[in-house]
Design a protein around this nucleic acid. Sequence first.
DNA 1: ACCTCTTTTTGAACGTGTTCAAGATGGGAT
DNA 2: ATCCCATCTTGAACACGTTCAAAAAGAGGT
Lengths: 277, 277
Amino acid sequence: MPAKDESAAAASGAAGPRTKAPKSEQTRALILETAMRLFQERGYDKTTMRAIAAEAGVSVGNAYYYFEGKEFLIQGFYDRMTREHALDARERMAGRTDFSERLSIALESWVDCAAPYHEFAAQFFRTAADPNSALSPFSNESHPARATAVQLFREVLDGSDLGPKIDPELDELLPDLLWLHLMVVVLYWVFDRTDDTERTRAFVQRCAPFVAKIVTLSRYRVFRPLVRDAVDMIRDFVLPTIGKTAASRPATARTPSAPAGPDAGKPGKTTRRLRRG
Amino acid sequence: MPAKDESAAAASGAAGPRTKAPKSEQTRALILETAMRLFQERGYDKTTMRAIAAEAGVSVGNAYYYFEGKEFLIQGFYDRMTREHALDARERMAGRTDFSERLSIALESWVDCAAPYHEFAAQFFRTAADPNSALSPFSNESHPARATAVQLFREVLDGSDLGPKIDPELDELLPDLLWLHLMVVVLYWVFDRTDDTERTRAFVQRCAPFVAKIVTLSRYRVFRPLVRDAVDMIRDFVLPTIGKTAASRPATARTPSAPAGPDAGKPGKTTRRLRRG
DNA sequence: ACCTCTTTTTGAACGTGTTCAAGATGGGAT
DNA sequence: ATCCCATCTTGAACACGTTCAAAAAGAGGT
């Protein structure tokens, strides 16, 4: 049983090595770096595991010792790009306070950061679309990349001037919703075949004001019931799937909070007082 | 150059065989049927091309003569399921006139029809998620399965009693939008790990009234600007990607907020008074 | 019958991702 | 030093999707 799972290794052995052997970590990094370089040079499909191993000066079996499979090498890309994006977006947003503008900048920043990888993004995407894969952006909450992205969107909101006036329940959900919006943009981007993904850029420019408008309008009385419904639905059906909230599998089970309340049998803890008809 | 593309073969040779050789079509069908049977029995990954060929009593090369690759065998499944769904949904909707109910039935019918394939839907989905693949539901408009599904949703609308009162522009888009909604349900379903995909079923039950509410509310004055924006955006950015509308590359144009004329530089015929029956 | 050309069929061979039994390495404990 | 054990490394071997040159089977025409 090799110690592939470092978090487990770090948590289990109390008397064990506090920092995992730097030697092995070095090999791991070497393989990952080599893989990423070759991916960028030749594309994902054209880069064989044998080539990666050879280029890194290790055996092919060794690569599999550190990475469960070829697709796991992609994670490095994903993580790196997400970090770059967060940094770049923060920098570009600095000083701006208009929500629509900030959102637009954040999304455009993503398109820019992702641009170098667009060519083999398809392969990438294909792997991420597999629910069984650990790479799926929806699967494991632990995915650090998602946390980074959600955090960025929280900052997009916090830095803008529509602060306390909007529905607190919606406000709580918004960072995740904006991340979801980013996922839609990603989907659009992956399928975008125009030069420099101009189409996606235009899409983003149109989306941002629209989203801002929705958020702004959500304050008004007329929209409240609709917003309520949407918020409830997202809380019950979307967030749990992403791994948010303690209730991670409430579908057939009972409600996690409010034992025998009005929504017994309902998927999530809806709202305490929901005037349902 | 073998005649893999039967539509071309049928259209080109004026003096050629009006019906393509039934012999070869028989082999093709045999391979497809065998593949579908094995996929259902063992799952997609576990079913090897060698096994399909052996079970069908042909050589492996022969399978590749009729199908460009393994993934192309999936298309058979996709098409069949879509047809089944359309039939089943129509039957179940018969007599109902409430839009929300009809939509709910149509979606639930899909979940039921897709249930037998849920196990290997992941692999399926993974393939469909590849923009390069001919299987992608977004790629080629010609995809007959999508046409069937969109047509079904048109019937969902036509059979319901909210007919002429809703915004005609929205009405025109709705079938495609509902299909898009189905795609979201599919996404949800693929990732759903609950027993009998109970969670997806609950999701659908909640979505349908919500969608109906939106459609209903879209009539009121307050919502008009929002609906307008949404309709425009969808027409400009979503439908062209699906292959709808002649204007398929409007992205790089100018700012959308009407500088010169009402629709100057707009890709589609955006705002126009359509009085549809 | 014989030749000619297209359509269909074959199966060995290639390149790939992945596995695995076996070996090498290194650091403590005796 | 010697042994022990976990960690790391190896490369041959496996199974799979896919390709391809060549053979077989038809389909006309003479």
